[in-house]
Design a protein around this nucleic acid. Structure first.
Lengths: 122, 122
DNA sequence: CTGATATATAGCTTTACGGAAATATAGCCG
DNA sequence: CGGCTATATTTCCGTAAAGCTATATATCAG
């Protein structure tokens, strides 16, 4: 599996940075949809959604079919694999910080317990 | 682990959309760095890097210390966990498409083989 | 206090984004 | 053909991003 060209990652992350586009992807996870079906749930105009779709298309996250006057949109998750792989390179760092957080919470609990017994004894 | 507020994800993905910022994160994976150390490898001005750092800071991906006139920058990977989790929700889709790709390649190989034997027989 | 160093802020330009409205294109149906 | 529906394209607006130079602030060193 070859590494994606850098500017593809640029486009993928940029596409994911908008909540409307993430919502569109979520909708497409349930299956193909027409543009109008994608417009419906949002308080946004059809051209605005079409523009979002173009951004998703440029990122390779979506592809379009052709059926009469409909242009069904379907999810293409492959580029997400590259994004996941990139982020995955940092997993050890966040796990490490969660470990530290966990240790901190454990420490708090210990102190809490100790104080509780002191209060009891008092 | 609670879900991060949506606009935090916005900022994280937006921050990751720039190759300079991803490179900065990669550098910080090797440990704390000063601003000047981060400027050095790029053909960019110091204020430009400072601006990138502000974007990373807004996304919660880095934090700054204070040591004399230095402001050491360190990686804070926690928000990447949220991003990874979001993307992870789509894993089955890209695995599915890789499966299809794999099946396609297998099919190609079968045909290739068949043609090869035909050529031999001819 | 002065000078040097590290970083931040301000101001400017160019380009892109996210939205809207209006219009154009394309394909169906009668 | 003509009208209807789905979608795309164009044009416009305001805001933000990414770069630069120049300047300001802060801290150390002497």
């Amino acid at each position: 599996m070859s590494l994606a060209p850098v500017d593809q990652l640029d486009h993928v992350f940029a596409a994911l940075a908008d909540p409307t586009r993430r919502a569109i992807l979520a909708r497409l996870a349930a299956g193909e949809a027409t543009v109008n079906e994608l417009v419906a749930p949002f308080a946004l105009s059809q051209p605005t959604i079409s523009k979002h779709l173009k951004v998703l298309e440029r990122a390779g996250l979506v592809s379009r079919g052709r059926a009469a006057q409909f242009r069904p949109v379907r999810l293409n998750a492959a580029p997400l694999a590259d994004a996941a792989q990139w982020i995955g390179g940092y997993r050890r760092f966040w796990e490490q910080s969660f470990d530290r957080l966990d240790a901190y919470v454990q420490d708090l609990k210990r102190k809490e317990k100790r104080n509780a017994s002191q209060r009891k004894r008092k």
